[in-house]
Design a protein around this nucleic acid. Structure first.
Ligand SMILES: Nc1nc2c(ncn2[C@H]2C[C@H](O)[C@@H](COP(=O)(O)OP(=O)(O)OP(=O)(O)O)O2)c(=O)[nH]1
Ligand SMILES: [Mg+2]
Ligand SMILES: [Mg+2]
Ligand SMILES: [Zn+2]
Length: 573
DNA sequence: GCCGTTTTCGGCCCGACTGTTTTCAGTCG
């Protein structure tokens, strides 16, 4: 799959063209094509082979030719020419907040500066302020910006961003100045990482609310502040945008700030074509403001079904909504149980009884106890004897209490050679066996793929736990031929886990999309190590929704009898 | 450079904030 490669070339061409001063529509054409290619459900090579490149939105004859060139040679002539003309070092300057294509071009043409270091020296030496439209403030802002870029402020993981966003939301609500405050942006779209936190508020006193916002104790720096919008940097991490509008304007402001940018663009051009104007204040025909009470009213006026935020990426959802063919996405309420939790038998913080109680509070009808196996010594994993004891304990609980139904399971380690950490004869007696990799992550693609395939071939294994092994921001995904693993899983009726723990989110949205295309079944599990962890389910559901997952594909939306029947029958084949 | 349920040519989303400027360009959301 070379979609990233092709998109990267187009993105780079767009940036270089922009610095060169090419017409903005041309620049946008390359950006649009790059986005479309990233959003493709299949490899761009397939479209190429089928002669269907121009079916990709934003790809016409010229860009199809360039894709052909890139696939053949890894690059294209236009890119090479641009790199001769425009020093590629200028591109790193675009990372600096407040520095765009015009500034990069200016410092290059007038001062001969070709990279970030050169820009920094020029700012230090006060040479920037000699340029037209530049002054002392911009000079120091650029120095500040360069220092920030050098610190490499990463995108925040979803879980960290959620709790930060909630706490700021609470503070704004407590001020009493806001009628409503909602989380928008990529966080509302449940992206696994977010560049910033976007909040939108309805208030009769926008300026006062902005004051409260910028005076929050968590605020380290006010980046920008106006009458309706402010942006702050938080300690220790994170940037937060707040947009304030009136109550009437709120639905359109929420729609605007939820994005994505590309989705907004599509909505606004649809509106245009209908003789309407859509902005963050409302939907207008001529000077007249149409009555809009909620987001759905806007979509309806544009001839669309309401589109769930998780799908708003301009990745085909507009076309589906036009045809009225949006999927009925899975919801938290569809989840009937959790099939992967730990207890004090290994490294959990709560015993079986407490976890069952917590599951009951969530209204679950089943819960699978899946503790670690013996080779995971840091977690005091269970050996065969202890596992049998735990199974007996689970069965004792089941006699006493009917809801939730407890499944006796295990999260058995997949050893380096793909064999399992526990005797198959013992595993065979369990209700559900989840197999996961916890060590030897750095194997070659070949070895790792063979390892997972071997584990999946074991008749006792039902679920592949956190399939790629990635930890958000900490550990890269293992090198795996996921397609091969998924094909095997689909063929043998094995289930792929969507691990909902916010540090994992594994499979992620792209992985789930692939699994869906291969026809795999999924289980969305929290991997909870205590009662609070069970609430992470929402993260997994959010990621699954981004991939367009419907309830039937997820086995823990099934009623207990169907689930047990499936686990038993599959185990016997 | 792409594209069309008004168009195969003439459009291409729309607005806030900052710094620099006496009226707006650049950048960003
Ligand atoms: N109409 C329009 N809306 C935009 C544009 N840029 C951004 N927005 C809207 C949609 C975005 O989701 C929203 C918030 O902007 P952000 O830069 O924070 O992006 P977003 O939250 O989607 O992703 P992030 O994870 O923060 O990088 O503002 C634009 O150029 N036009
Ligand atoms: Mg954002
Ligand atoms: Mg933002
Ligand atoms: Zn695990």
């Amino acid at each position: 799959m070379r979609n990233h490669e092709v998109a990267w070339v187009f993105q780079r061409i767009a940036d270089l063209l922009e610095i060169k001063g090419a017409p903005s529509y041309k620049v946008r054409a390359y950006r649009r094509a790059a986005h479309s290619i990233l959003a493709l459900p299949r490899p761009v090579e397939d479209y190429h082979a089928e002669g269907r490149l121009t079916e990709i939105p934003g790809v016409g004859k010229a860009l199809a030719g360039k894709i052909d060139e890139i696939l053949a040679s890894g690059t294209c002539r236009l890119l090479k020419e641009l790199e001769e003309e425009v020093p590629p070092g200028l591109l790193e300057m675009l990372e600096v907040p407040g520095v765009g294509a015009k500034t990069a071009a200016l410092v290059y043409r007038q001062l001969g500066i070709t990279d970030l270091d050169g820009l920094e020296r020029a700012a230090r030496d006060h040479r920037l302020r000699t340029l037209p439209g530049m002054g002392g403030k911009k000079e120091s802002n650029i120095l500040h910006g360069i220092a920030l870029v050098r610190r490499r402020p990463d995108r925040l993981p979803l879980g960290v961003a959620r709790s930060l966003a909630e706490s700021i939301r609470e503070a704004l609500v407590r001020s009493g100045l806001a009628e409503r405050v909602e989380i928008a942006g990529s966080l509302r779209r449940w992206r696994e990482t977010v560049g910033d936190i976007d909040l939108v508020a309805a208030s009769p006193h926008p300026e006062q609310l902005v004051e409260v916002f910028t005076a929050l104790p968590i605020c380290e720096e006010v980046i920008e502040k106006g009458p309706t919008r402010a942006r702050i940097r938080c300690r220790p991490v994170g940037q937060v945008d707040l947009r304030v509008v009136s109550g009437d304007e709120f639905p359109c402001a929420l729609l605007y700030l939820t994005g994505s940018k590309e989705h907004n663009l599509r909505l606004r051009s649809l509106a245009q074509r209908k003789g309407l104007k859509l902005n963050e204040y409302g939907l207008f025909r001529g000077g007249e403001r149409l009555a809009i009470a909620c987001e759905a009213d806007v979509y309806e006026a544009l001839g669309l079904q309401w589109i769930p935020p998780e799908l708003r990426e301009d990745a085909g959802e507009i076309e589906a909504a036009l045809r009225g063919e949006l999927p009925r996405l899975i919801e938290l309420d569809d989840i009937k149980g959790d099939l992967h939790v730990h207890t004090t038998w290994t490294d959990g913080t709560a015993d079986i009884l407490e976890m069952a109680g917590a599951a009951a509070e969530l209204g679950y009808s089943y819960l699978a106890i899946c503790d670690h196996s013996k080779s995971l010594t840091v977690a005091v994993g269970l050996d065969e004897k202890r596992l049998l004891e735990q199974k007996a304990a689970v069965e004792r609980y089941r006699k006493r209490s009917t809801e939730p139904y407890l499944l006796a399971g295990v999260e058995v380690d997949i050893l380096a050679d793909g064999t399992l950490d526990l005797e198959e004869s013992v595993l065979a007696g369990l209700d559900v066996v989840c197999a996961s990799v916890h060590r030897a992550f750095r194997q070659s693609r070949e070895d790792m793929t063979a390892r997972l395939l071997r584990a999946l071939r074991s008749p006792v294994v039902r679920v592949l736990g956190h399939p790629t092994g990635r930890l958000l921001g900490t550990r890269e995904s293992c090198d795996i031929d996921l397609e091969a693993v998924m094909e095997a899983a689909a063929a043998e009726g094995k289930i792929l886990e969507v691990n909902a723990s916010p540090e994992r989110l594994d499979l992620n949205d792209a992985g789930i999309r692939m699994a869906k295309a291969k026809g795999c079944l999924l289980a969305i599990n929290t991997d909870a190590h205590g009662p609070a962890g069970l609430r992470d389910m929402r993260y997994g559901v959010g990621i699954a929704r981004r991939a367009g997952v419907t309830p039937d594909m997820v086995i823990n939306t099934w009623p207990l009898d169907r689930l047990l029947a499936y686990l038993r029958s599959a185990a016997n084949t």
